[in-house]
Design a protein around this nucleic acid. Structure first.
Lengths: 131, 131
DNA sequence: TTGCTCCTCACGTCACGTGAGGTGGC
DNA sequence: TTGCTCCTCACGTCACGTGAGGTGGC
């Protein structure tokens, strides 16, 4: 899978992917200089998650780098768990998910508050029509 | 109220306010060149709404300019309604609110979907601990 | 008078967009 | 061989951040 296919799969552009590689947000696919970059299906998942966090939470690329580091730690834990199931790995895993949940649910609450404010406005308009 | 107080009230910087004025997103407060900008309580409401749409929906300043135009139209309708209540004004008003509601609720649904995905992950971790 | 905030350039930065000119694979 | 996509500079743009040097009001 080349860069154009990856970009299309996640809804972005090749330039963005190259930029993320440049700043160290995505690992550079090892290749001779000037050769085409090659990607796997797992890169689609990974990049999609990154872009979703960016779009939904408005995270900067610096903040995303932290989340990506946490995702990497998660992947390492899964491999470690496969070799030797240690409950402490589960603690770390749930701490990570809890942190993401906190970010996402706070944002969702803000949106819900705004939405109900808009519903109130709507009600006021309908009430004015009744009179 | 001067620019620093406005910025603090809405949680942004004077530079951002000047930039928004520069690109025509905020109306320039009429004043002699070099004199201090003066703002009203209504400017706080207005800017707060703009920044909220930007932060929660990720709108660009170009897109915000459209929304601001709609908000202006809304203010004009309110004044027109005060003078002569015409039901057509209510139709326009509810069309505007409906559009904002559409934007906000779609975004909230995306966040809710992400959140439930995270909850699933959490459940999987807890289930692993039971075994 | 002394701070503090304000003013206007103007250059820097972040996250890419957009060609310019050239090479590689179905 | 012809398109199409890819490559690497490198400059442009959007939305501000950050001084530089100076003026204004409690």
């Amino acid at each position: 899978m080349r860069i154009g296919a990856l970009a299309a799969a996640v809804g972005t552009t090749p330039r963005t992917i190259r930029y993320y590689e440049e700043i160290g947000l995505l690992a550079p696919s090892s290749r001779p200089v000037g050769a085409h970059r090659e990607y796997l299906e797992s890169d689609v998942e990974r990049l999609r998650e990154i872009l979703r966090l960016k779009a939904l939470l408005g995270l900067s690329l610096d903040e995303l780098r932290e989340v990506v580091a946490l995702e990497d730690a998660r992947a390492r834990r899964r491999r470690a768990w496969a070799e030797a199931p240690d409950p402490r790995l589960l603690d770390e895993a749930s701490a990570h998910v809890d942190r993401l949940l906190q970010l996402v649910s706070r944002r969702r609450e803000e949106l819900a508050a705004f939405e109900s404010e808009l519903h109130s406005r709507r009600q006021a308009i309908l009430a004015a029509r009744e009179r």
